[in-house]
């Protein structure tokens, strides 16, 4: 199992390494000169100012040299400074990251708590009306965009009922964005759980369990659930990555101070160091969460745990 996790960790490091290359190239992948685009809206910029910006970003050097510099600073935890305000990017991101993590984690809990039991129920009641209603709801849940669901919840719970704050940064403020993110992902989790459980229910070992005369509940709890969870957990990692992506939209709707909101602002302002930092932090978070879920997966599946 340690070897399995070692392999996964190595893959994760490789992913982050590739991301650093992509991030360096990012600026050059945008057509046109990045610095000129940055200043396109401001009148009367002198060529000297452009040149100064170029050299302060290191853009006047060959790309490999830029990369080495970037990597060198990165290893010291330095992601550069923002173009507007000259604040250290790393510090800015680290301030906001906990907010996003809290949001994604709570949303994940909501998605799991709602999605898994419903998916299990749908699998158990496969082909019945309950299954049909649940799955149609799930498809609706997947299809509704975050911003629309978020607005609906906002009007209903905050404006009409007034039980939750509209926006801000108090402890209750996390509920609406987390609900928005969690509900649409609950639909995905429900569908995944359903298909994983149905798959397990048709396995030979479930027939064996029935042939032993075990009560139905026992077959479901001991045999179906334990075996069916393994594939569900594997996809949870991907799920979390989607959740982080969804957070960018949701944070902006609810003015939640996470890194998603920071990133969007930076994109509008072409604040390249922030965008680069955001991508790196985002990728690292996803890699770490995936690794954690791989560990859970290894614990659930004895074929890996005991290898």
């Amino acid at each position: 199992m340690l070897r399995f996790l070692g392999q996964r960790a190595a893959m994760g490091l490789l992913t982050i390494f590739v991301t650093t290359i992509a991030v360096t190239l990012l600026i050059h992948l945008v057509p046109g000169d990045p610095v000129e685009i940055m200043y396109a809206q401001s009148q009367g910029t002198t060529p000297e100012q452009l040149e100064a910006m170029r050299s302060s970003l290191g853009l006047d050097q060959p790309i490999p040299v830029q990369y080495v510099h970037f990597l060198g600073r990165l290893l010291q935890g330095d992601l550069g400074v923002t173009i507007r305000g000259q604040q250290p990017v790393a510090q800015l991101l680290m301030q906001r990251l906990p907010n996003t993590l809290a949001l994604a984690a709570l949303a994940m809990v909501i998605a799991t708590v709602i999605g898994m039991p419903l998916g299990f129920l749908a699998a158990y009641k496969r082909g019945t009306l309950i299954d049909g209603v649940l799955m149609v709801t799930a498809i609706a849940g997947i299809s509704i965009p975050h911003f629309w669901l978020g607005l609906l919840l906002l009007f209903w719970l905050a404006v009409d009922l007034g039980i939750l704050p509209v926006a801000g940064s108090g402890p209750l403020n996390i509920v609406l964005p987390a609900l928005t993110l969690g509900l649409s992902n609950a639909a995905i989790v429900a569908r995944m759980t359903r298909s994983a459980m149905i798959d397990v229910m048709s396995q030979d070992f479930i027939r064996t369990a029935h042939a032993k005369g075990l009560p139905k509940g026992k077959v479901l709890r001991r045999h179906v659930l334990r075996a069916g969870l393994v594939p569900v957990v594997t996809v949870m990692g991907l799920q979390f990555a989607f959740m982080m992506g969804g957070a960018i939209v949701v944070e902006n709707i609810f003015a939640w101070n996470g890194i998603g909101r920071l990133a969007l602002e930076a994109i509008f302002q072409r604040d390249y160091p922030v965008i680069q930092g955001f991508i790196l932090v985002f990728a690292t978070t996803v890699v770490v969460v995936m690794l954690a879920l791989d560990a859970v997966y290894a614990l659930l599946d004895p074929r890996i745990r005991r290898s």
Partner: peptide, 30 residues
């Protein structure tokens, strides 16, 4: 009756046992 009075074994030994439960758990439950 199942398990107690009538037992049944199947063709595929590789898939007829639950991969995530120990042999012991599967033996004693019945």
């Amino acid at each position: 009756v199942r398990g107690a009075r009538i037992g049944m074994i199947f063709q595929e030994p590789m898939t007829s046992l639950n991969p995530v439960l120990t042999i012991g758990e599967q033996l004693v439950e019945a």
